[in-house]
Design a protein around this nucleic acid. Structure first.
Lengths: 248, 248
DNA sequence: CTTGAAATGTGAGGATTTTAACAACCGCTC
DNA sequence: GAGCGGTTGTTAAAATCCTCACATTTCAAG
């Protein structure tokens, strides 16, 4: 595999992480190569890229026997995120109202909520709402506003109108960076605004992250570590006091 | 949905839970019906069953991004809807703010908006927002609220907070029924509330429908025919005065 | 038993996808 | 620069998929 091809494949996988499904013709246009080349790239990369009837999708989306290629392979953090959510889901009671932050981590949490739980879930990201809509007994409340493509989330001044009118038992927050000194940070300031507002209202606040986030620092600060009732990673739960950068 | 169809759909979903991916032809054989019937089953069950280039998969396999086939699979009026939107899209100016109603009709409108138009689009349905997010120069404003699965839309008392703070040049409305005497109606009352509020604020209101809707009457009334500046179907545009049930 | 509406099947056509063969191109060594 | 292997683009034919219109069946009500 040449360097060009490897780079192209990496770009495609990156696109897939945002879009999940891309049509062959669109991928070819975005990568600046012919469709045939994209086909060949996929054929030599069965582990990470799946393909189905003209559409390219992340292999993690599909597991079983599929006509052409496609395999299992999941990115290393997906397993950690899921494991963290296994611990986090125990915080949810059958008839509570919860808040679910944006990002990919808490998607796993949604999948892990028992189907018979009659919960109300508040969210502000499109992928989160979409995932929630598949749960049979979940009432979804979406915070509206202007769309931010990077995180597939909505935000605006009117979020607060809705938030002020609901009672939140538990808020599940994600972060792109966690630093013992500086606290929890994320990529975008508009997200930080929503997170802070939610944290000020929720009865319990849980930070759910995979441990690769620990030690990282991003642009937008939203809470000191002691603002959380617990920090939950794939290794389990720790209190905000016992949190240390070296803990993992 | 008949009992037979419901049972067939349940069987298909059950198969999907084991197999993840089933080819259309195989599903038809297993269910003992024609491929066309399976297609139609899927089309009326977009929430739980996904479809991609001849392959059926559990909706859980695919993230928010719903491909073209999903939205339109076996939708017999797709061509008429698209044609109606061809006429409707001429009402949009390059830098305006528009409202896009829920349903499948106006999805086609989004696809037809030129990529270089810098418009702001207000919506309240998840599939509409998802489609809008693919346009490069569109600012999306989502009205939040409680999720209604039947139309994939959100609504609540706080819609109005956002709506009151924006100026809408043109609103593109859809309807499930249009009756010369009774006016425009839709399936769900909560949609009617949003439609009415939008129509009271927008400078121009366009009803975009395929002509199969004409003569039908649904539960939730939202506007008399003279509330629209124009009614746009696949046959073109007519004024509210000249509107007659026999017009098409 | 008849009737009408809804559900289902069928087949033609057009559109899209797949495959394969071949030509053109690239980066490399000699 | 010529030669080489590997990569990429192009084309055409075959296979598959999608849509639409219409025929048929089913089912329930009259």
């Amino acid at each position: 595999m040449t360097a060009r091809k490897a780079q192209r494949t990496a770009r495609l996988i990156d696109l897939l992480s945002q879009r999940r499904v891309i049509h062959l013709s669109e991928a070819a246009a975005l990568l600046g190569v012919s469709e045939m080349t994209v086909r060949r790239d996929i054929a030599t990369n069965q582990g990470q890229i799946a393909y189905l009837g003209g559409h390219i999708l992340a292999a993690a989306e599909i597991e079983a026997d599929i006509p052409y290629e496609l395999a299992t392979a999941a990115d290393s953090h997906a397993a950690a995120k899921r494991e963290a959510c296994v611990h986090a889901v125990r915080k949810i009671r059958p008839d509570e109202t919860i808040f679910i932050d944006c990002g990919t981590t808490l998607i796993h949490l949604i999948d892990l909520i028992p189907d018979n739980y009659q919960i109300t879930a508040i969210c502000y990201a499109m992928n989160v709402a979409e995932r929630l809509s598949r749960k049979p007994n979940v009432t979804i409340i979406m915070l509206g506003g202007v769309y931010h493509p990077a995180s597939a989330s909505f935000s605006g001044t009117h979020d607060f109108d809705i938030l002020n009118s609901v009672g939140i038992n538990a808020a599940f927050l994600s972060a792109a960076g966690v630093d013992a000194k500086r606290g929890a940070t994320c990529e975008h300031f508009h997200e930080a605004v929503v997170k802070q507002k939610v944290m000020s209202l929720a009865r319990e606040n849980y930070l759910v992250i995979d441990s690769s986030k620990i030690g990282k620092l991003k642009r937008a600060f939203f809470s000191a570590m002691d603002g959380f009732d617990a920090i939950i990673t794939e290794h389990g739960e720790v209190g905000p006091d016992s949190f240390l950068p070296q803990a993992v």
